[in-house]
C-alpha cells in the first residue's frame, strides 16, 4: 500500500499540472524514487484526478507484480534514476515550450526568473520511437547535466529531490516560454538587463 503522504504529493502536483494546462486529460507522468523502489502513475490514469490505486510501486532494477500496470514510460524513469541523482521526475506537456522546441535546439530564457533558475534548456530529438532504450539513455544523459530537458514536439522531463522541485522547474520553463512568445507580439528590440548574459548561452 502506498504511503498516504506520498499519495497526497502525487495528487496535489498532478492536479496543479492539469489546472495549469500543462497536461491533457490523460497525458504526462510523475514518479518518485524511494531507495531501490520506484512509485509511478498507473497506465491510463488521469493526472488531474489521481486516486490512491492509480499509483504503482515497482523495483528500480527488477520487474515485479506492479509492473504490468505501470506506465509505458517506466523504462525512461528507471533509466533517469539510475543515471542521475534524481529522486523525483515530472513529465508534462507545456504547450508554449513545446511550440518553441519545434524550431530550436535549445531554449535560452530571456526573463529573470528562468535565467536565474534554468539558464538553458536543451531540446533533444526522439530519433527513435518514444520509450526506446536509446531515447531513454539520451534523455537520462542530458538530465545528468540539466535539471529540465525538452523532447522536441513532445514535452518536458524535469528532475528534483522532490516532486515539488521538479514541478517548479517545469512551470518556470512554461512561464518563461510564454513571456518569450509575448515579446514576439510586442516585437521591439531588447535592452539587455542581465549581467554577463553571454554566459547563459554557454551554460
Amino acid at each position: 500500500m502506498i504511503d498516504e503522504r506520498v499519495y497526497e504529493m502525487f495528487r496535489d502536483i498532478g492536479r496543479d499540472l492539469f489546472e495549469a494546462d500543462m497536461v491533457s486529460s490523460h497525458g504526462g507522468n510523475l514518479s518518485v524514487r524511494f531507495g531501490d523502489r520506484v512509485i509511478i502513475k498507473r497506465r491510463g490514469a488521469m493526472l488531474g484526478r489521481l486516486a490512491p490505486h492509480d499509483l504503482i510501486e515497482t523495483g528500480l532494477e527488477k520487474n515485479d507484480s506492479g509492473v504490468a500496470l505501470a506506465s509505458s514510460e517506466l523504462l525512461i524513469h528507471r533509466t533517469i534514476y539510475k543515471t542521475t541523482p534524481a529522486l523525483a521526475i515530472v513529465h508534462c506537456h507545456p504547450r508554449t515550450a513545446i511550440a518553441f522546441s519545434l524550431s530550436r535546439d535549445e531554449i535560452i530564457p530571456i526573463d529573470n526568473e528562468a535565467s536565474y533558475l534554468l539558464k538553458k534548456v536543451p531540446v533533444i530529438w526522439e530519433e527513435f520511437a518514444s520509450g526506446s532504450p536509446e531515447m531513454a539513455n539520451n534523455l537520462a544523459k542530458t538530465l545528468a547535466e540539466y535539471k529540465i530537458v525538452m523532447l522536441r514536439g513532445h514535452g518536458s522531463f524535469a528532475i528534483g529531490q522532490t516532486l515539488d522541485e521538479a514541478f517548479h522547474w517545469s512551470s518556470t520553463l512554461e512561464e518563461s516560454c510564454e513571456i518569450a512568445l509575448k515579446t514576439k507580439l510586442i516585437n521591439e528590440p531588447f535592452i539587455e538587463y542581465r549581467g554577463m548574459s553571454e554566459g547563459y548561452k554557454k551554460w
Binding site: 504511503d3 524511494f34 531507495g35 515539488d164
Partner: peptide
C-alpha cells in the same frame, strides 16, 4: 534541512519509508 527546515521541501520527520533515498543523496552530495 529536509526534516525540519524544509530545505528544499519539508518531509515528514517521523516517516521511515523512503528515507534512505534522501539520506544517500545527501551523504553523496
Amino acid at each position: 534541512g529536509l526534516e525540519v527546515l524544509g530545505l528544499p521541501k519539508l518531509i515528514d520527520r517521523f516517516q521511515v519509508y523512503g528515507k534512505s533515498s534522501y539520506v544517500i543523496l545527501h551523504q553523496n552530495a
